[in-house]
Amino acid sequence: MTWAEADYVEYLQQERRLFAWVMQRHGGLSPDESEAAALEQYPYEPSDAPFRGLVFHDEAWHWAMLAIHGDRYWADHPEFAQASAEYRALG
């Protein structure tokens, strides 16, 4: 997919915000730690990066749950298999 720069940056910021929220709410990280984790998970990729935005193929909820609970979180913690209503309200 080709991203217009403004669209990419807006989506990147939204995913960072959602990831940080999950890491703080469900992972017990402080606001600063959750923001740092979001920046690490969602680094800015230049427009000529070959797979720019590939991380967007799954939503922030999924990536955060993987970071918190590991592989197969959906089987070990079925209550987190779907994003919470609270998370959905943020988007």
Rank of each mutant, 00 (worst) to 15 (best):
M1R: 13
T2S: 09
T2D: 11
W3A: 02
W3N: 01
E5P: 14
A6I: 11
A6V: 07
A6W: 03
D7Y: 15
D7T: 15
D7C: 14
D7P: 04
V9S: 08
V9C: 06
E10G: 06
Y11P: 02
L12Y: 06
Q13D: 10
Q14V: 01
Q14K: 14
Q14C: 07
E15D: 06
R16Y: 03
R17T: 10
L18Q: 01
L18W: 00
L18T: 00
L18H: 00
F19I: 02
F19D: 00
A20T: 03
A20W: 04
W21E: 01
V22Q: 00
M23N: 01
M23V: 05
Q24Y: 05
R25C: 03
H26P: 02
G27S: 12
G27C: 07
G27N: 11
G28Y: 01
G28C: 06
G28D: 01
L29P: 00
L29W: 03
S30A: 09
S30Q: 09
P31Y: 08
E33D: 14
E33S: 06
E35I: 10
A38I: 02
A38C: 09
A38E: 01
A38H: 02
L39W: 14
E40R: 11
P43Y: 14
Y44E: 14
Y44V: 07
Y44M: 08
P46Y: 15
P46T: 15
S47D: 12
D48C: 07
A49P: 06
A49C: 10
P50M: 13
F51G: 04
F51N: 12
R52T: 08
R52W: 05
G53S: 05
G53C: 01
G53A: 00
L54M: 13
L54T: 09
L54I: 07
V55G: 09
F56V: 03
H57W: 13
D58K: 13
D58L: 12
E59V: 08
A60I: 04
W61N: 01
W61Q: 02
W61A: 04
W61H: 06
W63V: 03
W63L: 02
W63M: 02
A64F: 01
A64V: 07
M65C: 13
M65S: 02
M65E: 05
L66D: 05
A67V: 05
A67H: 04
A67E: 06
I68S: 02
I68P: 01
H69Q: 11
G70M: 03
D71Q: 08
D71N: 13
R72W: 11
Y73Q: 03
Y73E: 04
W74I: 03
W74C: 06
A75K: 09
A75E: 15
D76Q: 09
D76F: 14
D76Y: 13
D76E: 06
D76W: 10
E79R: 04
F80H: 15
A81H: 07
A81P: 07
Q82G: 13
Q82M: 15
Q82R: 14
A83Y: 10
A83D: 12
S84Y: 00
A85S: 14
A85L: 15
A85P: 05
E86R: 12
E86Y: 07
Y87V: 02
R88S: 12
A89R: 13
L90E: 12
G91R: 14
